[in-house]
Design a binder for these strands. Structure first.
Lengths: 131, 131
DNA sequence: CTTGACCCTGTAGTTGCTACAGGGAGCATA
DNA sequence: TATGCTCCCTGTAGCAACTACAGGGTCAAG
């Protein structure tokens, strides 16, 4: 059993974030000490680690919730898990493509700029309408 | 002169968003009709177009605010504009790199999965701690 | 004269936290 | 025993950048 601070350190999570996860129902309310302190067992540690790892991989809290409930059910619904992961992957691909397009536009804009000395700024011009 | 709805259509912006921009001081409060409707002139249209184009390029509202004030000043501070644009560019590069790393991790995870039929799910396993 | 599309203000919701404020618990030291 | 100090508690408000109401007013067409 460990305190919320210890759990936070173990999972690289801020204390407030842990309480937030509890509040939104992602983590079950843990046991309390006589002094009303939360105490967490290994299962809670595993669950929070799972959440954090999923978050690091960019899953939304809703997606994490879905993944957790699938593992909780133990129904081994691999198809659903796979779909969530693939959907997420597709979204990341989209974001990458968007950002690359953006980078291209931006770099064109920046390159057309004077570089800091000439008086009519092509960046502002590029952003302005009717040019 | 045009109504807020017309301005919204012309700039592909929701009416609520235009009012929001006004509330946070990005757009000046426009003139009103007798019936208290906002009316916008061409300058407002140009300004909102500038804002939207900047937003589309991923600039934050704070960055947009800075760009706008630079153009308002007319001081032709090209150096500052260039810096804002380059900073933004660097941030986008970072995001792209992050997402590509993420994609790699995710694809490794997904490929190791059964594909929807075998009962022990490697995705869940990959997300779980102590594996 | 009524219907419908538009507009108004003001407030609350979204995502995923983060940051207080104002207090209590628990342990070490003087 | 008193005093610090660190940790913990609850509850609320803030961030970005909108979006979505609720509950009303305005205006033109039929």
């Amino acid at each position: 059993m460990r305190s919320i601070g210890a759990l936070g350190k173990a999972t690289n999570t801020k204390v407030e974030t842990i309480r937030y996860y509890e509040r939104i129902g992602l983590l079950a309310p843990p046991q309390r000490t006589d002094g009303n302190y939360r105490t967490y067992d290994d299962e809670a540690l595993a669950r929070l680690s799972f959440i954090r790892r999923s978050r690091d991989l960019g899953f939304s809290l809703d997606q994490v919730r879905a993944l957790l409930s699938l593992t909780d059910q133990g129904t081994q619904d691999c198809k659903t898990v796979d779909r969530i992961a693939r959907d997420h992957m597709a979204e990341i691909e989209r974001k990458i493509a968007d950002l690359i397009a953006l980078r291209h536009e931006l770099s064109t804009m920046i390159e057309s700029c004077c570089g800091g000395s000439i008086s009519d700024c092509r960046i502002i011009e590029a952003l302005s309408p009717f040019d």
